[in-house]
Design a protein around this nucleic acid. Sequence first.
RNA 1: GGACAAUUAGCUCAGUUGGUUUAGAGCGCUGCCUUCACACGGCAGAGGUCACAAGUUCAAAUCUUGUAUUGUCCACCA
Length: 959
Amino acid sequence: MFGERTALPVNDAISGFFDFYQGYCVPIFKDNIKKNEQKPVQTFYITRMETRYNHKEIESKWLKNWDEQKNFKPASDANPAAKGQEHFSVVIPPPNVTGALHLGHALNNTIQDILIRYNRKLGKNTLWIPGTDHAGIATQAVVEKRLLQDEKKTRHDLGREELVKRIWKWKDEYEARITSQLKLLGSSCDWDRQRFTLDPICAKAVRYAFFNLFKKGLIYRGKRLVNWDTHLHTAVADDEIYHETVKGHFWTFKYPLADGSGYIPVATTRPETILGDTAVAVHPEDERYKKFIGKTLLVPFVNREIPVIADAILVDMEFGTGSVKVTPAHDPNDYATGLRHNLPMLNILNEDGSLNENAGEFKGLKGEKARAAVVEGLEKSGLLLKVEDHEMQVGKSDRSKTIIEPYLSDQWFLKMDKLAERAMQAVENGEVKFTPARYAKNYLNWLGEKRDWCISRQLWWGHQIPIWHVENSQLSTLNSQLKKHFATRSDIHFYQAENGDWLVCSLEKDLQENEIEGLKLVRDHDVLDTWFSSALWPHSTMGWPEQTDLLDTFYPTSVLVTARDIISLWVARMVIFSQENMGKIPFDNVYINPTILDGLGRRMSKSLGNGVDPLDIIEKYGADALRFVMCSMCTENQEARLPVKKEILEDGREINVSEKFEIGRNFGNKLWNAARFLSSYIVESGELRVESCANLEDKWVLSRLNTVIRQIQIALQNYRFSEYAAIIYHFVWDDLCSRYLEIKKGDISKESGSLLSHSLYTVLDLLHPIMPFITEELNSILFPNSQRVILRQWPKANEDLINAEIEKQFEDVFAIVEAVRSVRGRYSIAPAQKIAAVARTPANLENCKNMIADLSGLSSFEFGGNLNKPAFSASVVIPDGELFIPLEGILDREKEAARLKKEIEKAESFATSLEKKLSNENFVKNAPAAVIDGERQKLATQKDIAEKSKVALKELGII
RNA sequence: GGACAAUUAGCUCAGUUGGUUUAGAGCGCUGCCUUCACACGGCAGAGGUCACAAGUUCAAAUCUUGUAUUGUCCACCA
């Protein structure tokens, strides 16, 4: 058993006395000693570790463990005293229940979890509230689409109640999937506090927010031009529209004067809207048309009289005929013109997009048919002047993919001017900080427009507007009747709208149709825009309008992590609603994470088939690997590309993967194996006895470790996630494994065991926020008596141990090692074959002689200030000296000469440029002394290299 | 049209206030090594006039302006 290198499988059953034998940990069984007489010696739990890190079982094990131990819950849940301490809270940007999570979500939630885990380890009272969004129009559209596919039915076949029931079913299914995905990712959310934007708690917040705004007169109802989806029969937001370039025509026709004295030529891309014209506009300074201003025209087909108006905003004299037909009810610019000139707004469309009775003979026609019929009519009556081809942009609905019609309809609006102003101030005065800072501009620009927000949607899925219309609004006694009935009700507010309707808003209780005798109350059919409930998210999830403990302890939240495309839609509105409802901002910081694109710079989407499913990646590479790569991708850039490739699994399923995730998996495996190797040498719980670290390499690794702790802290404070990942990666791989472990592996003493344990222990802490599973697992194997990584204290940098001099000295030593290895490489000398080396240097290398010999496979190593160059040796310039490697029999003079020549050339050209720089008077006069010194030193080094290489070259000839 | 970005090795990207960077990392590539933690590994190496042009400066991948290409968001095109 002695000398067997594998870690010994020691478990509870055979734990006992241990000893070290040639560096291996060995159990000593002394059966004749009674158990209670055995002295309490350090107990080892050495588990047999696989040569490869196997993420699957380990991940599920720790998910279960953390959950059982309630580690994701805030400290104040178990210990009310913790309420007083500093808090760190985050609310999740609630994913839409339209579908499963994609890689963008994985990135977003990884970042949140990193921040949560880091702050939890800092000892703060930490809460992350998870949840999902009902995503009104998107979800309803998905369910309707499926309904049509599977059952060939429309929502009207089902009715409102049944459709909503179906959507709830869909929601349950996808909410469960989303939750499970988030859990598998390792998200340490407080799952008991999961919310849904349509659940009773959020619904209550919506009712209160709406009621308050309504009472303040900030919510109003009005006829406005909206983007109308003729397929879904609903208004859609500007941002739910995309534009497509289509080939159309530009028709020019005669607009006849009412007195028959002539016509104005007018051009249009949408001739069917002629039927809704209420004016023709010309530029006030247009000599061609000045004389027509104020005259009356006749609308073709319907013979309505309309005026010729002058408008310098709408009309561009250079474009088309220089005259514009004005259709206020069906075009945004014309609508604005209509408002300026007080023109009638004539609606010519039905909800389904067909022409209504205002269109006269064309009534009932729709879309292209209506257009063709009108054009034909114009042609027949001799009014058509010409037809040109014309490319134009057509707005289409994101959801139904059908053409959007600007449409005049009754909608609910929120007055934005004052609310927006206040929300802008929060960012302008630095209360809310964006990272990266440039995104603040995005926010301010959008709010600066102060457009009223259309908050109603003609959908069935969502928060139904808590307004009841009084049907008998013509009754003159209505006002007093309402007043009388609701006299004692502070939860009711009502008023008469601009169109004469009486509107009653109820705070909590739904009103009955026959609530007031003789009157009929009908609830508004519309639901609220999804973003209305999302805007309340930070405080609705914590129970507002109730005065909850949660709000007390965790509001405002610490940071919002989200994507840049919803800065205006969501971030801005949360600030507005939080200021309005809570009287404070909802979060101190907004971190905008990059958008993930595929290798060709395209967004990932179902239709392109380039999406990567996080679950596939977790399955193949592990959650830690996924998280590590997500973290590495988080730079200040606004996008991050991920080359995607197809892969066919054993079960025949085709999935998208990316080689990038190998970095994360390999890194985990590297750490795993370092730990596996060290598992035999772990002697204590990671505590460090600094006094035992006397060697150069010990001091060096301690210095590096503490530097890394400091660097990571700075990176995390500044949301520099990719930097964080890179720092810990290189420390583990290069410093700890490639260098320190390689130095120590031949002979691990108790002291170095202690330092190695300490380093590894600290690495587990530092890496935990990114890779929670493997760190927790390794900790349980190596340090079974310590507290779990998730909860224990984040390491503090010990500045006293950071030593730049030692780090420099160590680099010089490694330059020697690398010089020898380089010669080995050049001559293909097998690693097993020992060679000799001689260093001519004034430096005292006594304390690292063995280290150098070990790492570069030397049979002998001499050093000294006056040593001669051995015959037949290769020479390499090292810091402060030269290194010679005798290679009798294999030395290739040509090869050496070529290399030396190249080296000389390089050093001399560098030296020349440095000399030039240093001889520049202005440089010497202006540059800081440190820079000049640096350049002088560089010059000396280069000259030294050139000089020594020249000597070596010369010597080659005389061997 | 406006705003915001990007352009650095074959690919994906770092490079924080201009000077220890004639430029780093990972993958890929070449050669050697299955050495008792790890081949998801080790060692060595090749590979870049930092998109282009002008300017500021003693000094520019880094700052300014312009050009080209690409992307995202916003607005809009009778």
